[in-house]
Amino acid sequence: MILDQFTLPGPVKVWQAIWEILKSGAFFDDFQISITKTFMGFGIAALFGVPIGFLMGRTGYWKAFFHDGVVGAGSVPGIVYAIMALVIFGIGFQGPVLAVGLISMPFIALNVAEGIEGVDQDLVRMSSAYGRNERQVLRHVTAPSILPFVFAGVRLSFAIAWKVEALTEVFGSSNGVGFQIRFAFQGFSITRVLAWTLMFIFVLLVIERILAVLERRLFRWRTWEQAA
C-alpha cells in the first residue's frame, strides 16, 4: 500500500479546501448548528445530571440505584446512540441533542455527587450554629460547593460530547459538521474529509480553551483557597 498523492493530499490542498469552505460560509452555518446542538445536549445533561448527582451524593440508596445506569450511559458506544437516535427521531435535531445529553449526563451526575460528598461539614455546622435554615445552607454552602464540579464535568466531557454530536450527525442529519463529513466521504473526497476534520478539531480546541479560561475566572476563589 503506497501512500501517494491521491491517498494523502498534501497540506496545501487541504488548506485550499478549508479556505473554500470558509469562503462559502458553510463553516459558520454548519458549525453554528452543531455547536448549538451540543450545548442543548449539555442543557439536558445538566437538567437530569444535577438532580441525579444530588441524590447520589446524599443517599446510599440512590447511589446504588443510579450507579449502573449512569456508568452504563457513559459507556455506550457513540454509534449505538447515533443509530438509536436515528431510529427514534429520524433525521432531525433531537437525535444529536439527546445523544449528547445521554453521554454527558454521567460526567455531570458523578461530578455533582462528588461535590455533594465533598461539602465542607464544618461550614454546615457553622451555619446551624448561626441559625441558618436549610434553604440558606443550600444556596450559600451546598450550591457553591458543587458548582465547580459541575463546570469541570462540562468542560471535560465537551470533547466527547462534540465527537458524539458529529457522529450522530454523520448518521442522521441533513446539516451540521457530521453531515458534511459524511457527504465528503460519500463523494470519495479525502481532501474535504480532512478539511472538515481539521476545522472540527480546531473548534474543539478553541472551545475547550474558552471553557478553561471561563472556569478559572468563575472560580477565582478556588485558586486562593488552594494556595492558602
Binding site: V71, G74, S75, L156, I160
Partner: peptide, 16 residues
C-alpha cells in the same frame, strides 16, 4: 468512581 467511557476529572485535565 469512574466507569468505562468515563474519564476522571484529573486524568482528563492532564490528558488535555
Amino acid at each position: 468512581t469512574e466507569g468505562l467511557g468515563g474519564f476522571d476529572a484529573e486524568e482528563l485535565s492532564t490528558m488535555g
